[in-house]
Amino acid sequence: MRAVRYLLAGGALCIGMTAAAQSNTSNNSGTRFRWKDASGASVFSDSLTPDALKAGYDIVNGQGLVIRHVDRQLNADERAAARKVAEQKAAEERAREQRQRDDAQTLNAYPDEASFVAAKTAEVDNFEQAARTTRLNLQGQEKALADLLNRAGDLERSKQPVPPYLNDRIAKQRDTVSGLRATLQRQQAAKDEAKAGMDAQLKHYREIRSAAESAGGR
C-alpha cells in the first residue's frame, strides 16, 4: 500500500508538472502572428505558415498591438539584388571616407592657398622639366639614328653590302628612338593634365578650406 501511495503521489506530481508547463506555454504564447493573404485580408494565427513567411508578418500581443514586423523572405534574385545594392553602398561609403581622409591630408599639407598653388605649380614644372630632359635625349638619339642610316646609305650607294652588325645597330637605335618618343608623349600628356586640373583642384581646396574654417568657428 505504501508503494502504491508513492506511485500515485509520483503520478500526481508528473500531472501537475505537465499542467504547469502547459500553463506556462499558454502564457508565453500570448503573442500571435498577423499577415495579409493574396486578397489583402488580414490573417491571424498562433503559428507561422509558409504564406506568412512569403508575405511578411507582424508579431502582435494579446491586446492586438504590433510588437515587431518581420519582412517577407526574399527569393534568390531579390537576395542577389539586395546584396549588390549593399555592396555598392558600402563601396560608396568607403570612397566617401577616403575622400575625407584625402581632404584632411591636403589641409594639413597646405595650410593656406598660397602654399597649395605653389605646390601645384611645382608639379607642372616637374613634368615640364622631365619632358625637356627626354626631349634633349630624343634629339641626340635621333641624330645617332640618322648617322647610322647615312652610313648604311653610303654603303648601298657604293654597291657594298650593309654589314649585319650595322643593321642590328640601326634596329636597336630605332627602338630607342621609338621608346623615347612614347615617353615624351606620356610626359607631355601628364603635364597638360596637371595644368588643366589646377583650376578644379584649387576650387576644391577653397571649398574644403572654407568648410574647415566654418566648422572651426562653430
Rank of each mutant, 00 (worst) to 15 (best):
A95N: 07
R83C: 00
P50C: 13
V43Q: 15
A122F: 08
S115P: 02
V66K: 13
D51N: 09
E93Y: 00
G64N: 11
A90K: 11
P50H: 10
D37V: 14
Q73P: 00
T49E: 05
A90P: 03
E93F: 00
A86P: 04
R68F: 06
S47Q: 07
G64Y: 13
S115I: 04
A104T: 05
A122M: 14
D58V: 05
Q105K: 05
A81N: 06
T121N: 09
T49G: 03
Q105Y: 10
T121K: 10
E87A: 09
Q105G: 00
G30Y: 15
N27T: 12
S29V: 02
W35V: 05
E92G: 00
N75L: 14
N27K: 14
G56A: 05
N126H: 06
T106K: 03
V66T: 10
K120C: 04
A38R: 13
H69E: 14
T133L: 13
P111E: 11
V60T: 08
D125W: 03
Q98M: 07
P111G: 00
K89I: 03
S45L: 08
Q98I: 00
R99T: 01
T134V: 14
V43N: 12
I59H: 06
A82S: 10
N27Y: 15
E92F: 01
V66S: 08
N126Y: 02
A104E: 09
N61Y: 12
N75D: 15
G40N: 11
Q63I: 04
T106S: 07
A38I: 14
K120P: 00
D71I: 01
Q129H: 10
D102N: 11
N61C: 07
R96D: 05
Q63K: 11
N27V: 12
R101L: 08
A131Y: 10
V117F: 01
N108K: 09
S26Y: 15
A109N: 07
E87Q: 10
R132E: 13
I59V: 14
A119I: 03
S39W: 11
R94G: 01
A130S: 14
R99K: 09
V70H: 03
G56I: 06
S42H: 15
F44T: 07
E128L: 09
S26R: 15
E128D: 07
L74R: 10
A38V: 14
Y57L: 04
F116R: 01
K54P: 05
R79I: 03
A81K: 13
F33E: 01
W35I: 13
V43W: 09
D46R: 06
R68S: 08
N61Q: 09
V85H: 04
E123I: 02
R94I: 02
W35Y: 12
E113M: 10
V66P: 08
V85F: 01
A76M: 08
D37P: 12
A91H: 01
I59E: 07
K36I: 09
N28C: 08
K89P: 00
E92R: 08
H69D: 04
F127D: 12
D46Q: 10
V117P: 00
K36L: 15
R99N: 02
D46G: 07
V70A: 03
T106M: 09
R83D: 11
T31D: 15
L48G: 01
Q73E: 15
D58W: 04
V124K: 03
P50I: 12
R32D: 02
Q98K: 10
S45G: 12
D112L: 05
F44A: 06
R94T: 03
N61A: 04
F116W: 04
F44P: 04
E97D: 06
S29C: 11
P50A: 11
A86M: 12
V43E: 08
